[in-house]
């Protein structure tokens, strides 16, 4: 049994690692989505965190954990500075401002020397271990679950439902928005740092617009309203190529089409994501027990 597990890990280890990192990234976006803010900047925050952590490790010879924290801090500070002006915008406009920010970060990474230009920052030691990723993921998920039932969490939910009404109830909307945005940026930065230390290198392509869209897809497919939704979505979409290979489908277009089809079906028929299936079953079961 243990041998089989070890064999499974040897084959699918990298997929398992990427599921964990993508789940962390999905959670980072979920903080802002939970407040009804659509940010497309989280991929860029992950990039900032990844580059910062990589630079700290390579040029400053700092230990892994310190570099990771440094990366998260850099992403958080940029998130704070960016959030203050940008969070006055709503809906699509916020999405596009964060998108423009993401592009500027990507272009900066292509053009700066310290980030290694278009080829990226190479020679980052591969020290991220699977247990580190999943420990961080568990910690973050726990933090998010606690957050949801905290004052901050309820404030965010009320802002999602009706921002004007929330403001009338005395909720300091701007303050909570910036806090949520900064927390999201820090989680993304942390995930980016782990990614950089897993992949040996980090390039500007790793955090472009389409990665930002992927994070959104994880959240939508899994569901944004339940804490494990984004993790579920990230796991399913990241593992999908392997699952399809398992049933004999290897063609790129089909894989991509299935991806799109899942997203379409979820948004049309399960607006609260796949996690809502479980959530729907459970109250019904509870009701049956009490009856």
């Amino acid at each position: 049994m243990l041998e089989q597990l070890a064999q499974f890990y040897a084959v699918y280890g990298s997929v398992i690692n990427f599921i964990g990192i993508n789940a962390l990234l999905a959670l980072s976006l979920n903080v802002t989505l939970a407040a009804g803010m659509l940010s497309l900047g989280n991929a860029a925050f992950a990039g900032l965190g990844g580059y910062a952590a990589g630079i700290l490790t390579i040029y400053f010879k700092l230990p892994y954990v310190v570099s990771l924290c440094g990366g998260a801090l850099v992403a958080g500070i940029v998130g704070l500075v960016l959030g203050l002006p940008v969070l006055r915008l709503r809906g699509v406009f916020l999405a596009m401002a964060t998108l423009a920010f993401g592009e500027v970060v990507r272009i900066a990474a292509v053009n700066l020397d310290i980030t290694g230009g278009a080829e990226g920052l190479t020679g980052i030691p591969n020290v991220t271990k699977t247990w580190i990723i999943y420990l961080t993921l568990a910690g973050t998920a726990y933090f998010m679950a606690v957050l949801r039932s905290s004052k901050l969490g309820w404030a965010l939910v009320s802002m999602r439902e009706d921002e004007t009404a929330a403001a009338c109830l005395g909720i300091h909307v701007t303050y909570y928005k910036v806090v949520a945005f900064t927390i999201g940026a820090m989680i993304a930065g942390l995930a980016g740092g782990m990614y950089a230390h897993l992949n040996y290198l980090i390039t500007p392509r790793d955090f472009g617009f389409f990665i930002a869209v992927d994070l959104l897809i994880y959240n939508i497919v899994g569901g944004t309203r339940i804490w494990y939704g984004p993790i579920l979505g990230a796991a399913l979409i990241t593992a999908l190529p392997e699952i399809l290979r398992g049933v004999g489908v290897t063609a790129g277009p089909i894989r991509m089409g299935v991806n799109g089809l899942i997203l379409l079906l979820v948004i049309l028929f399960l607006p609260n994501g796949l996690a809502s299936i479980f959530a729907r079953v459970r109250p019904a079961a509870a009701k049956a027990e009490t009856a």
Binding site: V213, L216, I217, I220, A251, G252, P253, I254, R255, M256, G257, N259, G260, L261, L263, L264, I267, L268
Partner: peptide
Amino acid sequence: ISSIAMAIIFEAVAMG
């Protein structure tokens, strides 16, 4: 979101 889904499907069709 659904326009993103359709974009992915269209691109997959184009590639196929």
